[in-house]
Design a protein around this nucleic acid. Structure first.
Lengths: 193, 193, 193, 193
DNA sequence: AACTAACCGAGACGGTACGTCACGTCTTTCG
DNA sequence: CGAAAGACGTGACGTACCGTCTCGGTTAGTT
């Protein structure tokens, strides 16, 4: 519909892939701080312009390649709110832990002031997480486990907050995240009652 | 003792204040990302060397002027774990909300790789928070409210995580933090039982 | 003959004209330095490829559209060397002054290293000027005004040099070129004697 | 007088020299077109900022280091206008020929549009040449060789024009510039009479 | 009263990344 | 095959900020 005329040479998907691949590698090797657009261009065998044609900013590039999945598929119904919530939390924790070090914190820091990426982050990444939580909550209401679904924003904070700070602020061991997840779920369930 | 010979002109405390003041203003005006040492020097009417004589890096400067208090005094005993915990959480939330926007997230991002500030942050700022938590937990054990104090790291994550993401990630309204605090405390108490 | 198979769609002459027109306009508006091929394509409503199909480089395009005439027709015999030389010089001066500002100097600068255009410039543009000079010199010899024709290269320098620097280096007023021409001719005649 | 406060670390003259030296070398090695500020910085062992602190633009740098002398000292009085003029022309020709290839033409091309450098070029480089010519003319008037000094701008064009185009446009042999100088001087003298 | 050491504002230093721009080529779709 | 559109690799541009260093000059405490 409102796509406008097409025309012109289409973007080369091989270039897309080369950029994404190089960016991911460099993010893993050098971390958020040491990440350079020039280095991405060099490793991808690509001009810088090809990168900036796709991503208005270095941060958008990182966001796109590193927070790739943000899958948002709600988990299969496991029959109880406790089980569903545990599954969601584990997926979330894995997603957070999967990114190269410093990516989430770096991105979060660069979000202030760059309204463009900030809204995309909120409206895509976070909104999708919240949607999953609402789905799980809806199932519980349908089952009769809950009288009414609570404020999803509060629930969101209760769920991702501990995971986030455990991994990125407090330096908690990634192996023990599962234990933390159990505790988080227990607390949340108690509050929802 | 191991102060070395003194000699020479002492530091001008007016310079200390001018730097702190200028830094705080600029942090508030431009946020963490737009904050530059040159701008601080210019606004404070001070040479850059005077700043770097006091702070080894830009991050240390920001940490010092913006996370000032980090006081760490445990609250007065309010007679119950619930009341103590609520008081601690409220103080914590106020402290987080008091800093100019982007300071905590920016600092957190710059912590990766700069071992110096990272350890100071962990060993002073976070350790102090944890000590406060352990104190109120100890009181609860003494009172007989709890059989044994739980893992303080987990508790720390459960308490500070939701507040952090509410304020800095999810964009929750600062006015509603008190409501969130109540929920957090309720959840934590349920888990500790 | 050596044209090769023709075949296929013939070049659209309307495109030729659109390119030439856009190029001339942009040269006049932005000068040699600010002149870009993309801008020509955009203004002409033409693809860049259509331009590069016609001109191997930006310089060739400029050369072709801006130094168009370079006609090289020797002037009608005016009966004396002085009159012939004056006519030649005036034509030359008009030609130099006709190009948008910066074209001659810009082209001259880009000639270093680009052997292709450099030889074409020498062998077409300059050689043609020199041929005209040799023609009027030949007439003078035939008339008995001169014993022998002098070195044409030296004469070329004596004639075109002052005009060039007057217009493009010294910033002399274009209206006063005629006065300069008279002086140049007088000097040249004196030397040839 | 109106020098303003000094303050601050003074420019390091060694850096001045390193930049000038590197720039001259690179100009000689790669010519005007291949000349890069980054390369100058790299070879001089200097940051780019140090260069841009001294020269607002690449062209100013080239102008300063390559048209260095522009000495402007009028030659010793040789007793006659012919001898003085010959000396001036030879000096001029040597100066033009001394610069690395493409410098004069490149600079000339870049002068259009950059009013800053353009006026400096006119008011320093060209004005100085013209002053020398006026000095020589003044001597001739004082000697009684000339009734009145002619328009210096015209004389300037007559003198420098042929040399310029001989060297940079027509591709005349530099060895034969002396012969050209003699012819130029003869023509000019004839005109001045 | 002189000396000395550390301070002060100012600002230059080497380094490094940024995002933009133009070149001339290549690759689409359409006529 | 020509044409419009526009992406491609290359490579320079000039700007910004970092943390350090160097000026000339000031301000204590120590001789």
């Amino acid at each position: 519909m409102s796509e406008g005329k097409q025309g012109g040479r289409p973007r080369d998907e091989q270039v897309d892939r080369a950029i994404a691949r190089a960016a991911r590698e460099l993010l893993a090797e050098r971390g958020y701080t040491g990440f350079t657009v020039d280095a991405v261009a060099a490793r991808a065998g690509v001009g810088k312009a090809a990168i900036y044609r796709r991503f208005p900013t270095k941060q958008e590039l990182i966001y796109t390649v590193a927070i790739h999945g943000a899958n948002g598929e709600p988990p299969a119904d496991r029959g109880s709110l406790a089980a569903d919530l545990t599954a969601v939390c584990r997926t979330l924790a894995e997603q957070l832990a999967a990114a190269p070090p410093g990516v989430y914190t770096g991105l979060l820091a660069d979000l202030y002031g760059s309204s463009g990426l900030a809204t995309r982050f909120s409206e895509v990444f976070l909104a999708r997480q919240r949607a999953v939580l609402e789905e799980v909550l809806g199932r519980a209401v349908a089952r009769g486990e809950l009288a009414a679904a609570p404020d999803p924003l509060v629930l969101h904070a209760l769920v991702v907050g501990p995971l986030f700070v455990w991994l990125f602020v407090l330096g908690g061991a990634p192996e023990e995240v599962r234990k933390l997840v159990d505790t988080v779920v227990a607390g949340v369930l108690a509050v929802l009652r």
